[in-house]
Design a protein around this nucleic acid. Structure first.
Lengths: 226, 226
DNA sequence: CTTGGATTAATTGTATACAATAAAGCTCAG
DNA sequence: CTGAGCTTTATTGTATACAATTAATCCAAG
C-alpha cells in the first residue's frame, strides 16, 4: 500500500478502534472516501485489508459493515493466539541466538521502565510489548506463522486490553516476559510454549474481567455518555 | 468478488497451479488484464487475494511475483495446518450433531466410490475431500479459525499432492476420515484432534516423498527442459 | 572498462465516469 | 391492510485516463 490507501486504512481503522464507528455500522465507500480525503479506489483497497484483519465484514452482496465482536469471538481470537504464539515461542526457542536474547532483555527492561512510572506509560508499554512479540515471531522463522498471527495480534480487542490493566497486571506481563527469556536461554521449547500460552490466556481473562457485565454478548467500544 | 474479479482470480490462480507461470515470474497488471480479458481494476483485486493466499508475493515496491515454495515453506504450511485443523477437529467433536455425522459419512462414502474406480477419480476425490474438511471446520464454529485455515488449505501444494497418491494413499485417507467420524460419534475431542493431525502429517510426507530428490530446496512446477 | 547520475521507459497508484446490481419505496390487485 | 411486482434510488463493480513512482538505459567523467 502507498500514500492514499494507507491513509484510508489508518483513518478507517482508527475510526473503528476509537469507537467513532460502532459494530454493525454500514461502511459506504463514497462516504469513507470523502472522510479520508481520497477517492473510492484506495478506500476499496483499505476495506479489503480491514476485512482480512477481521475488523470489517462483508455481506454476500458485497456491502461492508464494522465487524461485531461477541465475547465468544474474542475468546476465539485469544484461544487461537495462545495456540499459535505458543507454537511460535517453541520454534523460537529452538532457533534462539544470544543476540536476540539480548534484544529481548533490553526490550523487557524498557517495558519495566514504562510500567514503573505513575501513571504507567501505556503507549510505550504497548509499543515495546509489540516489539517483544515481534522479535519472538521473527525468530520462529516461519513466514506463514507470521502472516497468520499478525492478523490476530492487530485486533482492537488486544489493543484495548492494556488500557484496563492495573499495576499488578502490568507486573505479571513483565514477569512472564522474563520467564520467556529464561526459557529461551535454556533453549527449552516446551517451557517457552507453556509460558507464552499462559501469557496470552492471562491477557484474555484481563479483558474478560474488565468487560464483564458491561457487555453481555457484545464487546463494543464505549459509546457516548454512559 | 464478482464476475470480472473472480474471472481474473481463477485465471491467474490456475496459471500458477498449472505451471504456466513459474515461481519468481513477474506478474504485470496490464499483461494479466489482457490475458483475463478484463481491465486492471479486477486484476489488482485478484492479485491482493492471491497475495493473501500466499500464491503471490509483492516486493516493497509493490511489484508482484509468483511465490516460490521451498520445501521448508511447504513443511511450515503443513505443520500449521496439522495444528489448526487438529484444533478444529477437537472443537468440532465438542459441537458435533448427528446430522453432521450423517453428512460426513455420506461424504466419505462418495470418496470411497471415487477412489475405487480405476483409474481413481481424483477430481471427485479432491472435491469431496474439501467438502469433508469444510464440514468439520464449519462444525468447529470459529469464524477466525475458518479464516486462518482456508488460506492454508487452498495452497497449490495441497492441491497437487493428491496427484501423486497411489491407491494405498487414497485408502489411508479414506480410513482416516472414517476414524475421524468414529471419534466424532463418541464426541471424543482428543481422539479427533490426534487423528486429524496425523491425517495432515501423512499428507505432507506423501508430498515430500513425491518431490524428494527432484526439487532440492525448491518445490516448483515442472519447467521445460532443464 | 567502470561508475554516478541524469534521462527515459515501464509499471503501479489514484481519480473519475459509467455500468451493473442490490436495496428501498411505491402502486395496485387481492 | 398485505404483499407481489414494478420503479426508483443507492451502492458497488469495472474501465479508462492520468499522476506518481520505480526500474532501466544511456552518457560522460574518471
Amino acid at each position: 500500500m502507498t500514500k492514499a490507501s494507507d491513509r484510508a486504512y489508518d483513518t478507517i481503522r482508527s475510526m473503528i478502534l476509537s469507537g467513532e464507528l460502532s459494530s454493525g455500522d454500514a461502511l459506504r465507500e463514497e462516504a469513507l472516501a470523502q472522510v479520508c480525503g481520497v477517492s473510492r479506489t484506495p478506500v476499496r483497497e483499505a476495506l479489503r485489508q480491514l476485512e482480512a484483519d477481521l475488523l470489517v465484514r462483508r455481506t454476500e452482496s458485497q456491502r461492508s459493515y464494522v465487524a461485531d465482536w461477541s465475547l465468544d469471538d474474542v475468546s476465539d481470537a485469544f484461544e487461537l493466539r495462545a495456540m499459535l504464539e505458543g507454537h511460535a515461542a517453541k520454534r523460537a526457542a529452538e532457533r534462539m541466538t544470544d543476540e536476540v536474547i539480548r534484544e529481548l532483555t533490553s526490550c523487557n527492561k524498557a517495558i519495566f521502565a514504562a510500567i514503573s512510572k505513575s501513571p504507567p506509560d501505556v503507549a510505550t508499554f504497548l509499543d515495546r510489548n509489540r516489539e517483544f512479540h515481534a522479535l519472538v515471531l521473527d525468530t520462529a522463522g516461519s513466514r506463514r506463522l507470521t502472516g497468520l498471527l499478525t492478523a490476530l495480534i492487530e485486533q482492537p480487542v488486544v489493543w484495548r486490553t492494556a488500557q484496563h490493566y492495573d499495576p499488578e497486571a502490568f507486573e505479571c506481563s513483565y514477569r512472564e516476559h522474563a520467564d520467556l527469556v529464561a526459557a529461551f536461554e535454556r533453549r527449552d521449547g516446551a517451557w517457552a510454549q507453556s509460558v507464552m500460552a499462559g501469557h496470552i490466556r492471562r491477557a484474555f481473562h484481563a479483558y474478560a474481567d474488565a468487560h464483564k457485565g458491561l457487555n453481555k454478548g457484545q464487546a463494543e467500544p464505549e459509546r457516548g455518555a454512559a
